[in-house]
Amino acid sequence: MKKSNNPSKTEKKEHLADLFCLPHDVVCGASNVTVVGSMRVFIENYKGILEYNNEEILLQGKHKKIKILGHCLKIRTYNEEEMVIDGGIEGILFMD
């Protein structure tokens, strides 16, 4: 899932990544979100937490904000590289 504020730049970068077979998250700096079932989410490439409560967690990605919706949400691990969120995941939104 790659998100960007500038579509034209993103398109160029994506084209470049496709051309040289490079991972999109590295080239475009997009956030990498991996969902395991409906109870765990791994997030990489993010800047920080904007809001946090048991029902939603709002994160600042490089280009977009990521909103994790659910219930009983807990931050299992939080460091500069990655974040692991546990709980009943109900949805993931990408916002400008």
Binding site: G48, L50, N54, K74, I75, R76, Y78, N79, E80
Partner: peptide, 28 residues
């Protein structure tokens, strides 16, 4: 300023884990 606190900790390499919210307070 709890989210800010968490972000600064992360930037300075201070490891926080098992963060959860209970009413108005955060546990970590």
């Amino acid at each position: 300023g709890v989210p800010r606190f968490v972000n600064i900790c992360s930037k300075r390499g201070i490891r926080l884990w098992d963060i959860e919210k209970q009413n108005d307070l955060y546990l970590t």
